[in-house]
Write a protein that binds this DNA or RNA. Structure first.
Lengths: 206, 206
DNA sequence: ATCATATTCAATAAATATATTGAATTATTG
DNA sequence: CAATAATTCAATATATTTATTGAATATGAT
């Protein structure tokens, strides 16, 4: 049956990592390899499986083959599944909430609050993902401060505006680290209770 | 990873059939066997897999072990996945729309229309699933007319009220058959564009 | 207790999925 | 057109999944 094939195609830890990576935007095989610690050939084979099952599509440019998720509908489905996992699969719920004091309401900001803050112009929205991911798509108004840049150059932000950091999704800890770091420096900073791909789906639905 | 385990547990054709069956209500192993043409031991083993992965839960009563879906949250997730499949997986879309002229708007009724018709009291809502499935849960106001009863006894309905038939879900053809049969007898009859489990989730959300 | 019935368990064989290796393609650049 | 770089393909070994068979439990009835 076609549904079971599709589900098989996404029910492998490596391929789920690929999907998470591609949720941030298209990547070539090298990019996938870096995001997942698979070998090159192995990554390529998994990508073939996903292509044959309509999970991803490809675009050729010079030497490179760029992979991306097949549709926004699929991205939305993947987020439904992930949300279920974070809420209902005990093991994952624990992992996500593990060392994240940030997820209490004191330290996290909802999309609604963020929109409010943006219209009021008193927020600096930090995208702490790698620069390439920012370039292939980000929340409107965000600035790119990849974690390594934040750590090494310790940029100065205006102390009077509030900071909000976000990253890849519920399993991404970068934003939490950024919050911790900046808090210690005396900034007013919170984590976005959401991520770029979730924001993207929200935009499509409104 | 826990998410891939959960997805593996639902990405098998037999287990998907089990989930579809349990979407209609709890069943013992014998009931699953009848709904899926697996052998007894095989069904039991698949049920163990689903139990160990928090897809189903059990209740013991005398000799029997009754299985049911673990939560309404899971039922909702399964429906999201199914809806995606029907819309986006070409092969399935074709299958469902195959010989279903019923799915054009002339021959199908949305939940909203149905609610309207029910308040206006001029509809006879026919549940054409097996009697046990009706008993373990049905759309409020429906009457149970299993397909075999409909065919053999050819019940007389009031010719002045409109008939609406429903069954298990998008892959269930019983309601289409009922529509065809009753149409030939001169009734005004349409198929519900939805099913009992979808109605159940709607109720929970409102 | 003994028996019958519903379900689970254990052992097996066959099929499928996965990671690794190295060779084969394909497109670009000089 | 040769050289290079990115990707895919093919072959293989290992691990996992699946269905089948028959035996083992557990529960209720006689």
């Amino acid at each position: 049956m076609g549904l079971s094939k599709m589900l098989k195609a996404i029910s492998n830890p490596n391929r789920l990592e690929v999907i998470e990576a591609l949720s941030q935007g298209e990547k070539n095989v090298e990019g996938i390899v870096q995001a997942t610690d698979m070998t090159f050939a192995n990554a390529s084979q998994h990508l073939q499986v996903m292509k044959n099952n309509n999970i991803v599509k490809t675009r050729k440019d010079g030497h490179y083959v760029y992979y991306s998720l097949v549709s926004d509908e699929f991205l939305a489905l993947h987020q439904h599944i992930t949300k279920y996992a974070v809420k209902e699969i005990a093991e994952l719920a624990r992992m996500v909430n593990w060392q994240r004091e940030a997820s209490d309401s004191q330290n996290s900001v909802s999309f609604e609050e963020l929109e409010q803050m943006i219209t009021e112009q008193n927020v600096l929205l930090l995208d702490v993902r790698p620069a390439e991911e920012f370039e292939s798509g980000h929340i409107t108004g965000a600035i790119s401060i990849p974690m390594d840049v934040l750590i090494s150059s310790l940029k100065d932000f205006a102390k009077d505006s509030e900071l909000v950091a976000y990253c890849r999704g519920p399993f991404c800890m970068l934003a939490d680290e950024a919050v911790k770091l900046l808090k210690d420096l005396g900034y007013r900073v919170r984590r976005l209770d959401g991520s770029y791909p979730e924001w993207k789906i929200r935009q499509l639905q409104s």
